[in-house]
Computed example of a mutant assay.
Amino acid sequence: MTSEFGNAGSRTHDWGTRAKRCVQQAREQLAGQLNATASELIFTSGATESNNIALLGLAPHGENHARRHIISSTIEHKAVLEPLEHLASRGFEVDLISPGPSGRVSVEAVRERLRDDTLLVSLMHVNNETGVIQPVAELAELLRETPTYLHVDAAQGFGKLTQDLKAPIDMISISGHKVGGPKGIGTLLIRRRGRDTVPLTPLMYGGGQERKLRPGTLPVPLIAGLAKAAEIFEKEHQQWWDQAATFRARLVEALGKTQVRFHGDQDHVVPHILNLSFEGVDAEALIVRLKELVAIATGSACTSASYTPSHVLRSMGLPEDVASNGLRLSWFPDQVQGLDMDELVNEIWAFQEEASYFA
């Protein structure tokens, strides 16, 4: 940000050349982690923008070829659901699958909804509230021989389950801060099918950067930070996974003292996200009780301030009182080393006992 302040778009001096080289190295590294080529990856401000470019950018192709059917799910992030709502207002038929209590959308449920005019399937890799892993690699194999494109919001999965993302997925959205990189940087992978690329129309105009899909001066320090974070995460992946899983096991065992309910298919979850509720306990009141010990939320960071029941838990068919009081716990292993597990569980147990007494 200080000593190397060159613009990657300036090609007439060394500062610009060095910046361009840094961006190219980052692009090659990140694309390589996804078994893709550097030319298939563009930089964005994060997964929200990547999702919008993928979904809204494909719409003109669908309109021009009478393919207005889109399949997605009710548990997607708002960064997918709201663009889909916009497309519905433009005449697209958006078919949302509800996964049921498991929180996992089956490949068969997608297969049953495929039609000749299905333009796109958009399914997240890992649910941000429950941690449930979606079968995106299997879905990619299903769709690869069809004209239907597959978009995956991999904000929560990149770095953790990157192997899944090496499958022939047409578009993949990534956010840097989910692997410890800077906030405000992400990527959209746009994978070719043979010689053909996904026919996206840009949402903004004003320059030729990023294959003309995302104009504007590239934030070189953020791009370098994302690449470095992804490099570190890849190198330390097994250690991170084992430590996250160990903490999860300790937490689940300790919570056995309380009347707790875990949400989603626990056989298909990442080790760093846990969604739960405590019988008879108001989630917001419990958050206040625990604020000196841990930072927890009722849903995703984008919606936790709204105090409304989680749309993810509601769409899984959970009762209203349970959906309203679901708590989302997530962690990086090095953030929880000093947590006093006994104190945390005792506070929850005591609060649950008080709530039961006054009820």
Rank of each mutant, 00 (worst) to 15 (best):
E4D: 11
F5I: 10
A8G: 07
A8Q: 05
S10C: 11
T12H: 13
D14I: 14
G16C: 09
G16Y: 08
T17D: 05
A19W: 08
R21G: 03
E28F: 00
Q33V: 07
T37G: 12
I42D: 08
E49G: 10
N52F: 03
G57Y: 01
P60R: 01
H61W: 13
E63F: 04
H65K: 03
I71H: 00
E76R: 01
E76T: 02
K78F: 04
V80A: 00
E85G: 04
A88K: 12
A88F: 01
R90V: 06
F92W: 07
P101N: 10
R104D: 04
V105K: 03
E112G: 01
E112F: 03
R113C: 10
R115K: 15
D116A: 14
T118L: 07
L119W: 04
L120V: 07
L123G: 02
L123H: 02
N127P: 01
V136E: 05
E145I: 00
L150V: 06
L165T: 04
K166M: 15
A167M: 14
D170E: 11
G181R: 01
K183Q: 09
G184M: 08
L188W: 04
T197P: 00
G206P: 07
L218C: 08
I223Q: 04
I223T: 05
L226C: 12
A227H: 05
A227S: 14
A227E: 05
A230N: 01
A230V: 05
D242V: 13
Q243R: 15
Q243N: 15
T246P: 00
F247Q: 06
Q259L: 11
V260I: 15
R261Y: 10
F262C: 10
D265M: 08
V269L: 03
H272N: 15
N275H: 15
E279N: 13
A283E: 12
A283N: 12
R289H: 14
L290F: 02
L290I: 06
E292W: 02
L293P: 04
T298A: 02
G299N: 10
A301W: 11
S306H: 13
H311G: 07
V312T: 03
M316D: 01
G317H: 04
E320P: 03
A323W: 01
L329V: 10
S330N: 14
D334T: 11
L339S: 03
M341G: 11
D342Q: 03
E343F: 00
V345Q: 02
N346P: 02
E347L: 07
Q352M: 03
A359W: 06
